[in-house]
Design a protein around this nucleic acid. Structure first.
Lengths: 232, 232
DNA sequence: TCACGAACGAGAGCACCGCTCTCGCCCACG
DNA sequence: CGTGGGCGAGAGCGGTGCTCTCGTTCGTGA
């Protein structure tokens, strides 16, 4: 029933996409705070009130862009993993995924900021965002899972004993992995984005100049921290 | 000459402080994007144009708040280090500083977001911010330096060989420390804020529930990654 | 001492914003 | 074929950052 929708529905999809495209363009040049419904409408030859036929509010437009951005960075990570799949070591896959996420962030800094930077502390993300938001994390988990299950090359790498609460959290998130690996995985997930955020926000200016090799090295160390690198 | 300034100068200082206080209050309740000059003026019983006698623009007000926030979190880190100074192991000092930074961030989420989150990708921070912004990093460096120089307990912990550029960067930043330690230090610096940002932004919701022990564990692992933990 | 000038607050006003409401139009479905 | 609902246009509301002008106040240098 959805294959050949009426012209009405098709037009709606097209206009919605055009609005998002124009909004993304303004996002890239001006940033999220400067994104203006009126400017988007103006650029599209519409009047501002017409946009409200497609998005109930400016925040809903932003939410749509957020979901798209989560999907885009998640897909970048998944494609990087797929490209590395055969015969690459877990550490090599990990690094490739990290580099892909970083590359996407540097190519779309404002969209990356939108999802990982400027979030409002009090604000609870709408339910539709949680799925797309999890994709990068799931890619990282899958690398560890493959390494642990398939070839069994990921030993629990940690010397510091875990608290009981951490054990429980690990059992909930990924019961098939050693708790220490799960905890390290979650931490590495956040730390990866710390590295990228600092680079995107310019915190490394005058501190790290050759950021590409620095990042690669840090990503490899993260892989080590999760136990993806075999002791030599 | 500056001890007993005229009454006008004192009034100016007081009004400036009152503006910043009210702005901080609104920042805490509404967030940076909703901070309104007119609302601040209204609350202070002034008219909006009067604020421009004290801050040339809204962005300059925000810059002032940014500097204050950098100083506040830097001071929190420095005080945590000072409190731990005597007889504490380098790893214990490291963890204490990390926990102090996190505690400040959780207590002032909007101010933390202002300095580490919502930064505009294209925007270059004014020169006045670089000093205050460096304070937390310098505290971390000082811990590693004390450990390396004073007691020599920080062995270069890394197995992956460094690139030549990384060696050069390390020599510029802290020539008295082993390059591998400097590189790990910079990465740990960014990763620490990745952990805190994810917690402040709610990325750990439904993922990490007992965040305090999780963070402490992650901070200890970061100390390990810099070489602050002696091999058992 | 006193006049000058700088700093100050008030107010009006500009251009822009998000959002609402009403109004005609026109297409698709019953 | 008639009609109801989706649509775009337009006016308008209250808000924003920022500018300019105009009296007033108050410290300071002559």
């Amino acid at each position: 029933m959805s294959t050949v929708q009426g012209a009405r529905a098709r037009a709606r999809i097209e206009v919605t996409a055009a609005i998002k495209d124009e909004a993304r363009k303004q996002l890239a040049t001006e940033g999220a705070t400067k994104l203006s419904l009126r400017a988007v409408a103006r650029e599209l030859g519409m009047v501002s009130s017409a946009l409200y036929r497609y998005f109930p509010s400016r925040d809903d437009l932003l939410t749509a862009l957020i979901i798209d951005a989560y999907d885009a960075v998640g897909e970048a990570a998944e494609q990087a993993l797929a490209k590395q799949r055969k015969a690459a070591s877990p550490a090599a896959r990990w690094t490739a995924v990290c580099r892909a996420v970083r590359a996407w962030a540097l190519a779309h800094p404002h969209e990356f900021t939108l999802i990982y930077g400027s979030s409002v502390p009090g604000y609870t993300a709408p339910q539709e965002t949680v799925g797309p938001a999890a994709r990068v994390g799931l890619v990282l988990v899958s690398i560890a899972r493959d390494a642990h299950h398939g070839k069994g090359i990921a030993p629990p790498p940690l010397a510091v004993p875990l608290r009981a609460e951490a054990e429980r959290m690990a059992a909930e998130l990924a019961p098939d992995l050693p708790p220490a690996v799960v905890v390290a995985l979650v931490a590495a997930w956040a730390q990866l984005f710390g590295l990228i955020l600092f680079e995107v926000f310019g915190q490394f200016r005058r501190v790290v100049e050759d950021r590409d090799p620095f990042f690669t090295h840090a990503a490899e160390q993260l892989a080590r921290s999760v136990g993806l690198v075999l002791p030599a």
